[in-house]
């Protein structure tokens, strides 16, 4: 019986969460379907004018992706908290922040990545051209992991609280604003032929900063939540 290393432990956590997600496919599908429905509602609400839709498209897809990410957050730690496996994670010899990073990665693979994959289809509904679609994918690919990481802090803080869902939205949505601005901005800038490099670089910088800081804050919040 050898001791396990940090990388070992992190891959175990990721593999465990992916396996559970695979056995609970309905959970994964709900946030994806929410995303599709929310985006499809907008043309019904604002009319089907192609020019208007093309202008609003990037923002609508991004706002819906952000809300879908937020809805999925409640599941990030809730079941681990309920069945006691969260205590095991906290008591692991490995640093909790790294295990949190692994959990968030698994969560993003099952909730964020599907959104990124389906987003171009929704972009087509809004008449975005192929270049804009490409940038949409790139911006979501850089932006949604940041959303999952920031959201983890809120999910940990509201763990086990009554009415946690609405509170989670209040805590997390203001923090999502920079990602939204640069994510939707990247697509809009491409549509206006301005180039999206600056936007994407900033999204990348936000992601790097969040990777460093968010798992630490989430780990702290988890320790507070299980006291």
């Amino acid at each position: 019986m050898n001791n396990t290393s940090l990388i070992d432990c992190m891959t175990t956590v990721i593999a465990r969460d992916l396996r559970i997600a695979l056995r609970r496919r309905a959970d994964v599908m709900t946030s994806l379907i929410f995303f599709v429905i929310a985006v499809s509602l907008f043309p019904l609400g604002i009319g089907a004018d192609p020019v208007l839709l093309r202008t609003l498209g990037p923002g609508v897809v991004w706002v819906a992706a952000l809300l879908a990410c937020m809805l999925a957050l409640a599941r990030l730690f809730a079941s681990d908290h309920a069945d006691g496996t969260l205590e095991q994670l906290v008591l692991s010899p490995q640093p909790l922040s790294m295990l949190v990073l692994a959990k968030t990665a698994a969560h993003w693979l099952t909730t964020g990545l599907p959104l990124v994959i389906i987003a171009p289809v929704l972009g087509l509904q809004f008449g975005l051209d192929s270049e804009a679609l490409l940038i949409l994918i790139a911006s979501l690919l850089l932006g949604t992991p940041t959303l999952s990481l920031i959201g983890g802090i809120g999910a940990a803080l509201t763990l086990g609280l009554p009415g946690g869902g609405a509170l989670l939205a209040l805590l997390v949505l203001p923090l999502y604003i920079p990602v939204l601005i640069f994510g939707a901005g990247a697509v809009e800038a491409t549509a206006a032929a301005l180039g999206a490099t600056a936007h994407l670089s900033i999204l990348g910088a936000l992601l790097l900063g969040t990777i460093v800081f968010a798992p630490w804050a989430t780990a702290l919040a988890l320790k507070i939540a299980i006291e």
């Binding site: 802090i153 809120g154 803080l157 805590l171 203001p174 923090l175 604003i177 920079p178 601005i181 640069f182 901005g185 809009e188 800038a189 936000l206 800081f213 804050a217 702290l220 919040a221 507070i224 939540a225």
Partner: peptide, 26 residues
């Protein structure tokens, strides 16, 4: 718990401010 969100918020305030400013000029 509230301290954690206050610290996260304080770190984010300048980022939010500059991103909103950028958004506004565009």
């Amino acid at each position: 718990a509230a301290a954690v969100i206050a610290i996260v918020g304080a770190i984010n305030v300048p980022i939010i401010y500059f991103s909103v400013k950028w958004w506004n000029t565009l």
